[in-house]
Nucleic acid binder design. Structure first.
Length: 570
RNA sequence: GCGCAGGUAGUCUAGUGGUAGGACAACGGCUUUCCGAGCCGUUAGCCCGGGUUCGAAUCCCGGCCUGCGCACCA
């Protein structure tokens, strides 16, 4: 069973009402996997769409979708194949398992790159023992990537991606071309990623298969700015720097004082905060924490996590990293592809250089068929002095100044090739969805009874509107079914429910966060009006059925009160 | 992966060798009709595998899952 003994009230509700379920439940379950049940799936999709609004539609960003499986080369280049594999050692006496590099650094203060042989040697040379004085077993590797094979037989070694980002980096040439080779631009990807966690815990917080929304925003290495920074510059937020000093400060001041390294990092921190607020994360339960130097991933130059306070404590929900040119450089090196971009200078640089201009009339007769190639090489060489030595097909050829003329020429340099740096805001959608649910979960007292109500932002509600006949009989039921159908045709996620008393039904929809209930009552048959009930206040107003779609549209996309749309009921 | 504690209907829980009980939820009916009302009825359960025993939800062993602590979380 999921979260058995101390199952929190909210977890109980999420499972019972169909937000999340344990995967593989009838076969005993498997830690680290969850099913998105109907309501949870809808909620996550809505969060994804708002993320798109923030990080795709309103940025110079395009979204792509690349395979979940990656061939081995990708992760060798990215560094995951080596640094994602931890070497572990197990004590033969007490059975404790340590990460070998951590244990060696801790006990011997030796930095070590994790290879089995290197660790084996250290264990032998220093006769390292466990804290309980037991001997260690042979070091073994714990690969945190799921591996698989492509094709028949032994096949080609491949891994399930541990992040969506690599699919973006390896498509960089195409992407850059798509953006007409002009920085800055970004590429987003929403999808599953996989980590074979040793011991997944805390329900949805650490999963083996999880949902990411990642943005890789490529910028010029010397221009780590964003043209829209002023939009968030005055936002005040809580920062915890790498020395654990807490600042309540605006983003512009944080950049001025060097707490945040550059403007674009600050921009995405601000944008992330706005996004989290939009989906209902509470400002006072949100902070941004800078990674300490020993905490950063192998690729990151600087990294800030958005952390959210939940019943599990502060949990990391977004990582905003400056990955510099690490990934593109590595893929460039391993694939032998040029992953740089040509950047034109605003004004071409004019430089005077000395050039050797070949005298073909001397070169030709002397070197015969080699003359042309020699001339080509000569023109490429930076020249100084009287004599030049060049190498042609392994043969060294000395050329004295009778073969060329030295000219000082002005050359225009119109630009340079640079490997862009990448700023990566990486969102853990599962954790975010869970945090939203926790921050929305509330109880109040209505007429002396405790009421459980999920105060989701209206635009996140999995069921947007419920149509309820006051009485579970004709003609109320048919009328309510008709209205439900009208609302569905207008694109609303609509439930119809005639089971139990009206109060019981209101409670059902309060519990899953449905913001509005439409009630068909006696008066409906007199003047074609219904009541709209507001989840948060339980207040009702009476409106015309014909106006319902328009009114609901306005209500669902804003936070204005229902009293603006009709006369109060009762 | 180690240690501790658990696993009984959808949910919560009682039962600790001999017919598995309740509450809530759900569903049907009657009744009521604007905030979890009432009555009647129905559906539905001992995590999986092995052992001990005449007999196991209960005792033993192994596994899986959940929670907590340690470790891990690039």
């Amino acid at each position: 069973m999921l979260f058995a003994s101390s199952m929190s009230e909210i977890m109980e509700m999420l499972i019972r009402r169909g937000f999340i379920w344990q995967s593989f439940e009838i076969y005993g379950g498997m830690a680290g996997f969850i099913d998105y049940a109907p309501l949870g799936n809808n909620l996550r999709r809505k969060i994804e769409n708002i993320w798109r609004e923030f990080f795709v539609i309103n940025e110079r960003v395009a979204e792509i979708d690349t395979p979940l499986i990656g061939v081995e080369e990708v992760f060798v280049a990215s560094g995951h194949a080596t640094s994602f594999v931890d070497i572990a050692i197990e004590c033969q006496k007490c059975g404790r398992v340590y990460r070998a590099d951590h244990y060696i650094k801790d006990k011997l203060n030796i930095e070590i790159n994790s290879s089995i042989d290197a660790i084996k040697e250290i264990l032998e040379v220093y006769d390292l023992k466990c804290e309980c004085d037991g001997n260690f077993s042979e070091p073994f590797s714990m690969n945190l990537m799921f591996s698989t094979n492509i094709g028949a037989g032994k096949g080609k070694k491949a891994f399930l991606r541990p992040e969506t980002a690599q699919g973006i980096f390896i498509a960089f040439k195409r992407i850059s071309n798509y953006f007409r080779d002009k920085l800055p631009f970004g590429v987003a990807q929403i999808g599953r990623a996989f980590r074979n966690e040793i011991s997944p815990r805390q329900g949805v917080i650490r999963l083996r298969e999880f949902n990411q929304a990642e943005l890789e925003f490529f910028v010029h290495p010397r221009e780590k700015k964003h043209s829209n920074f002023r939009e968030v510059a005055d936002d005040e937020l809580t920062l915890v720097d790498k020395f654990e000093k807490v600042h309540r400060i605006t983003l512009s001041k944080a950049v001025e004082r060097g707490i945040i390294a550059n403007e674009i990092l600050a921009y995405f921190i601000g944008k992330t905060r706005r996004f989290l607020l939009k989906i209902g994360i509470k400002d006072e339960k949100m902070r941004f924490r800078q990674h300490k130097d020993d905490e950063k991933a192998h690729y990151a130059a600087d990294c800030w996590d958005a952390e959210v306070l939940t019943s599990f404590g502060w949990i990391e929900v977004v990582g905003i990293a400056d990955r510099t040119d690490y990934d593109l450089s590595r893929h460039s090196k391993f694939s032998r592809e040029d992953l740089s971009i040509f950047i034109s200078y605003s004004k071409p640089l004019v430089v005077k250089i000395k050039k050797a201009v070949p005298k073909m009339d001397v070169l030709g007769p002397f070197f015969k068929s080699k003359a042309k190639k020699i001339a080509e090489l000569l023109e490429k060489i930076e020249f100084e002095g009287e004599k030049i030595e060049i190498e042609l097909e392994g043969e060294k050829i000395k050329l004295s100044n009778e073969f060329f003329e030295v000219k000082e020429v002005e050359e225009e340099i119109t630009g340079e090739r640079v490997i862009p740096h990448v700023i990566e805001p990486s969102f853990g959608l599962d954790r975010i969805s869970y945090a939203v649910l926790e921050h929305s979960f509330d109880k109040d007292i209505v007429k002396g009874e405790e009421r459980r109500v999920l105060r989701l932002k209206r635009w996140l509600a999995p069921i947007e509107v419920a149509v309820l006949p006051l009485l579970s009989k004709e003609p109320f039921t048919t009328k309510a079914i008709d209205i439900a159908s009208l609302l569905r045709k207008n694109g609303f996620y609509t439930d119809y429910d005639d089971s139990g008393s009206i109060g019981r039904r209101y409670r059902r929809y309060d519990e899953i966060g449905t913001p509005f209930c439409i009630t068909v009552d006696h008066q409906t048959f007199e003047d074609d009006t219904v009541t709209i009930r507001d989840r948060d206040s339980t207040e009702q107003v009476r409106v015309k059925v014909l106006d319902l779609p328009e009114i609901l549209k306005e209500l669902m996309t804003s936070e204005i009160g229902i009293e603006n749309f009709g006369k109060r009921f009762q």
